[in-house]
């Protein structure tokens, strides 16, 4: 079961590359691996906690006001994480900047709350939060790996290819768009080929 869930979160329902949710943080914070993975893990933590709480209170919330309720629960966890990051990881907090509070409006988290946690039990919702968060973190990792190597010729802050002039445009806005376009195209190509092989 765990294997299937992992496959669902990372491959078939990958939030960024297949469902195309949560684009803003994935493009804005994937300028270096540290930022990308940091953002991914932060979002995973919030997603898992909010999924757990929402599935606990899902029968108490009237249907009409459920979205505001979900947003308040998510915003509470985001505030907790904001304070924790400020206290223990100030460098990461500074790098992610405005995108830490903006996790509140990350469509992945609200989407999972609406599509999964509001219909399933606590344990299943926690697992769902973990695997979807892992899928988000992995796709952020791939994007930031490509962008950091091409854009600043570094990997985790260390020089990568000696004597190669980095293409700075890859850590600026246009490079983000180009990188996600090609990663998405590769994912789609592999998916199509697999389908073709089966048929």
């Amino acid at each position: 079961m765990i294997k299937e869930e992992l496959k669902r979160g990372i491959i078939t329902e990958n939030p960024t590359l297949v469902l195309v949710l949560g684009l803003c943080p994935s493009l804005a914070t994937s300028t270096s691996i540290q930022n990308g993975i940091g953002m991914g893990l932060t979002a995973t933590f919030i997603l898992t906690c909010s999924n757990a709480i929402i599935s606990l209170v899902r029968k108490l919330i009237p249907d009409k006001v459920r979205i505001p309720c979900y947003i308040v629960i998510i915003a509470a966890f985001v505030s907790i994480v904001q304070l924790l990051l400020k206290a223990y990881l100030p460098a990461l907090d500074k790098q992610l900047g405005i995108f830490v509070p903006l996790i509140v409006v990350n469509c992945i988290i609200l989407g999972r709350a609406e599509a999964y946690a509001s219909k399933n039990g606590v344990f299943k919702s926690i697992i769902d939060g973990l695997v979807i968060g892992l899928g988000f973190t992995i796709s952020l990792g791939i994007l930031s790996f490509i962008r950091e190597i091409l854009g600043s010729n570094k990997l985790l802050g260390l020089k990568f290819f000696p004597g190669y002039e980095p293409m700075t445009v890859f850590i600026l806005a246009p490079g983000g768009f180009f990188t996600i376009a090609f990663v998405m195209a590769i994912v789609r190509y592999l998916g199509n080929r697999k389908k073709g092989a089966k048929a």
Partner: peptide
Amino acid sequence: TLDGLPISFITAGLMA
């Protein structure tokens, strides 16, 4: 493979 979103991302990249 580029149809739909990927080509839109490339367009957005050129605009950026």
